[in-house]
Design a protein around this nucleic acid. Structure first.
Length: 353
DNA sequence: GAGATTTGACCAGA
DNA sequence: TCTGGTCAAATCTC
């Protein structure tokens, strides 16, 4: 079963490779180009349908040595072993890991591309656990290829925070620029009122209040914390909803209740790396969890009920990639590029061994 | 000079 | 008592 699935994937990859190799020739032959692309899309759609119909669960591995890549997916429904997807030569790693104490109900999948200055993370509820919901949404920003997914934590355990943890949203966003100390613009104007070293964290936490607080008595606050293991990603915690509703930009998301994402581009082929990344983000947004919540403009990323849906993000990620219509392996490289300086290579893979 | 940022001190919850 | 969150004076920037 896996072999046939693998062969389907390899078939799609081969088609993509062929297209890539002949791209210079086909550049002025749109008809052939379109047909070739449709063939590739069709191949990966077949993969997607096969994956979904067979309801992949448990441990599974897909090897693609011919394209120099290995897609590996480890998971057990009971214990949420780390799920790792390694790519071309193992140069990039995507994994689901604990980012919070084991008692927490949050798990995440994170993707990060330092060259693009792009980070992408998925969170979903505890597998096999009960209780809280993790509400998710996605967005793509215009600065530095920022990609982010927002998740409102509504679990009971999360509410037992130090102070008022209700109406708290944790968001992870990539730094708008390499080495930037400031988090990406989120559409609101903030006033920094404090910074503090946090025990056990490598980087200080910054505290912000809404700049409209005085004018509108807006209670919104946010905290910005760099991740220890990936300083190119900020963990932004929003507290309290904005009551001012006055934004610094016309088209902004309004955390914590983010608005619906923009429709995907008409063309299936983004014209730049950033567009590709953003486009992937939007695809991810549309697919992760699947069921839009029109009332809040958010998506349910996981029910937290420990059912088979918990396994969806991996399949959906494949869906997003395979359905993207990306015709060449370059696009994969762009999104999950193999970078020598990629810190995950050294740090994360050691853990895996 | 006004507004933003920094930083040490203080407060409150666990 | 420890630690995260907030306050407010000092400092910086425009």
């Amino acid at each position: 079963m896996e072999d046939s699935l693998e062969s389907l994937i390899l078939h799609g990859c081969r088609l993509a490779e062929i297209l890539e190799q002949n791209l210079p020739i086909l550049a002025d032959q749109p008809d052939i180009l379109v047909n070739s692309c449709e063939e590739i899309v069709s191949a990966f759609k077949n993969v997607k349908e096969r994956v979904l119909s067979e309801g992949h669960t448990g441990v599974q591995e897909l090897h693609g040595s011919e394209v120099g890549g290995v897609i590996r997916e480890h998971a057990t429904m009971a214990s949420l072993d780390p799920r790792v997807i390694t790519g071309v030569g193992g140069a990039y790693t995507r994994r689901v890991e604990d980012v919070v104490p084991e008692s927490s109900e949050m798990k995440r999948m994170s993707l990060h591309d330092q060259r693009l200055g792009m980070g992408l993370e998925l969170m979903f509820g505890e597998i096999g656990g009960g209780g809280g919901d993790v509400m998710g949404t996605g967005s793509s920003g215009g600065t530095g290829g920022e990609i982010s997914l927002d998740f409102s934590i509504a679990s009971s355990s999360q509410r037992q925070g130090r102070k008022n943890e209700i109406d708290k949203v944790v968001k992870r966003v990539a730094a708008p620029q390499m080495g930037s100390d400031t988090p990406p613009e989120d559409g609101f104007t903030w006033k920094k009122y404090g910074q503090k070293e946090i025990l056990g964290r490598a980087y200080p936490r910054s505290y912000y209040i809404c700049a409209q607080q005085k004018l509108h008595s807006c209670p919104a606050k946010k905290q910005v914390q760099r991740l220890d293991h990936d300083p190119f990603i900020f963990e932004v915690t929003y507290r309290n909803s904005h009551t001012c509703r006055v934004t610094s930009a016309a088209t902004v998301q309004i955390p914590p209740s983010t608005t619906a994402p923009p429709p995907p581009p008409v063309s299936p082929f983004p014209t730049s790396t950033i567009a590709t990344a953003q486009w992937l983000s939007m695809n991810m947004f549309h697919h992760v969890g699947g069921v839009p919540d029109s009332s809040a403009g958010m998506l349910k990323a996981g029910s937290g009920g420990g059912n088979s849906n918990d396994f969806q993000p991996v399949a959906e990620m494949a869906d997003a990639m395979f359905n993207s219509g990306s015709s060449s392996s370059n696009s994969m490289d762009l999104i999950f590029s193999s970078l020598d300086e990629h810190k995950w290579d050294s740090t994360e893979e050691k853990k895996d061994q």
